[in-house]
Simulated assay, not measured.
Amino acid sequence: MATLKKKIWIVLDSRGFGGIESHVEQLALGLSSARTDVTVVFLNQYGEHPIQKRLLYHGLDCQILDGRIVSLWQAIRKDMPDVIHTHGYKAGILARPIAKMMGITCASTFHSGEVKEGKMKFYDWVDRHTAFLANQVYAVSTPVLESIPCPAKLANNFVNVEDSEASNGDQIAFVGRLSKEKAPERFVHLAKRFPHLEFHVYGDGPMLKSLEKSAPQNLTFHGAQSDMRKVWNLIGLLVIPSRAEGLPMSSLEAMARGIPVAAFNVGALGQLIEHNHNGWLLEQGDMNGLVEVIHQWRNSDVVQRAEWRMRAISTIKKDYSAEAVVPQLLKAYATAAK
């Protein structure tokens, strides 16, 4: 007799594409490859979502609600998933109590560790202090884990390596949201230090206009990308100069394609990157160290670059691939249900 597929909902509230959205895409594809019935549920409609087309292309179901808690309640009661996995503060705050009342296994992943301001500070507090309603709580880095006031587990972000073609590009790039915690102005400073090299920024955010005003001519802003798969093949070195991080999806996606990463030691990057082995890990704010890394990378030969490339790919396959992480996640879902 055939066993019924486990029905899993991945719930988020999203307007664009960033680390959480990239994680959700990889999670949905990974769970689907493990023969589960996956639906990605967007709490509100903000226009066509960047990852929706890609999910549909892979045969995954998507639901888009109208932002009201009653609509979420009705959709859950109608579909009755076995597991609801939330991402982001709004999804967690709304879906956890509903799952609790309906007796549905619920998991929540926390991605962000930076200090919030204004309304976001309040929402972030509520999100963390209602996390106990979930059966399983995950954090993508140790600093994020330490900010959750209930029992939680460290869980690796991951990527599907089968979809990751090795890059043959040579761009020096920043990929991510242009906001204070990501410190994109440090990348602008690097570009000024190397006027003979081309630097590229892929992303959007509140700092865009101020960055454009101070940017040198050798720095190009490409804006947010709806499909980074078309971009990764152009990149040879990824720079992550952040002040705060969890475990950024950009680092995993880059390394899965053999692109070494130069980053400051924040969040879980110290667990991912081994200095001068599969990338470069520097003390927070060590801009001179980043300058030296760019010199080293630019002056390296084909053999050395091939070694960095293979080590980066090997790191991802071993500990940060869907094949390594998804079976553990499914086991945790089953344990929570019991």
Results as ranks from 00 to 15, higher is better:
His275Gly: 01
Met80Lys: 13
Gln26Glu: 15
Ala215His: 08
Ile235Tyr: 09
Ala107Met: 12
Ile51Phe: 05
Asn288Asp: 15
Glu25Pro: 03
Gln271Val: 01
Gln217Ala: 15
Asn157Gln: 02
Val201Tyr: 05
Phe132Pro: 02
Gly223Glu: 11
Leu330Met: 04
Cys150Asn: 09
Gly118His: 09
Gly223His: 09
Ala155His: 12
Leu238Gly: 08
Ala34Val: 01
His23Gly: 04
Gln296Arg: 14
Ser210His: 12
Ser112Asp: 13
Leu56Thr: 14
Met310Cys: 11
His295Val: 09
Leu145Met: 12
Ala28Thr: 01
Lys318Cys: 08
Ala166Trp: 07
Met310Thr: 12
Gly258Ala: 07
Ser32Gln: 10
Trp9His: 11
Ser314Leu: 11
Tyr138Trp: 15
Ser314Thr: 15
Val24Asn: 02
Gln63Gly: 08
Val41Ser: 13
Tyr123Arg: 03
Thr130Asn: 09
Thr3Tyr: 11
Ser250Gln: 08
Ala263Pro: 02
Asp127Lys: 05
Glu162Ile: 05
Val159His: 00
Phe221Ser: 01
Asn218Arg: 11
Val293Asn: 05
Ala336Lys: 03
Trp308His: 05
Leu247Lys: 00
Val326Asn: 01
Leu133Trp: 11
His87Trp: 10
Pro50Tyr: 04
Leu43Tyr: 10
Val115Lys: 13
Ala99Ser: 15
Asp124Glu: 15
Ile10Phe: 10
Arg177Glu: 12
Leu237Trp: 02
Ala2Glu: 14
Asn288Ile: 03
Phe158Trp: 06
Gln45Ser: 13
Ile64Pro: 03
Gly267Trp: 00
Met101Cys: 13
Ile104Phe: 06
Gly67Tyr: 11
Gln74Ile: 11
Ala254Tyr: 01
Ser147Ile: 07
Ile294Asn: 07
Ile51Glu: 02
His277Asn: 10
Ala268Lys: 07
Val291Gly: 10
Lys5Leu: 15
Met207Ile: 07
Asp163Pro: 00
Ala268Gly: 11
Ile84Trp: 03
Glu283Phe: 10
Glu253Met: 05
Cys106Tyr: 05
Ser141Ala: 14
Gln225Ala: 09
Leu272Met: 01
Lys121His: 13
Tyr202Phe: 15
Leu178Tyr: 06
Val140Trp: 11
Ser250His: 05
Leu329Met: 13
Gly223Trp: 07
Leu272Tyr: 04
Pro149Val: 04
Trp280Pro: 01
Ala173Val: 00
Ala2Cys: 09
Trp297Leu: 02
Asp61Tyr: 11
Pro260Tyr: 05
Ala173Tyr: 07
Gln217Lys: 14
Val40Phe: 06
Lys192Phe: 09
Thr105Glu: 10
Pro151Thr: 09
Asp37Glu: 09
Lys182Gln: 07
His275Glu: 03
Gln304Pro: 03
Val302Met: 13
Ile10Ser: 10
Pro248His: 01
Ile240Thr: 02
Gly203Met: 03
Asp37Pro: 00
Arg128Thr: 10
Tyr333Leu: 00
Glu165Val: 13
Leu72Lys: 02
Gly18Val: 00
Val159Leu: 00
Glu307Ala: 14
Val40Trp: 03
Glu21Ile: 08
Met207Asp: 13
Gly18Thr: 03
Lys119Asn: 14
Gly103Asp: 08
Leu237Ile: 03
Leu330Glu: 01
Pro248Ser: 07
Leu133Asp: 09
Gln217Cys: 12
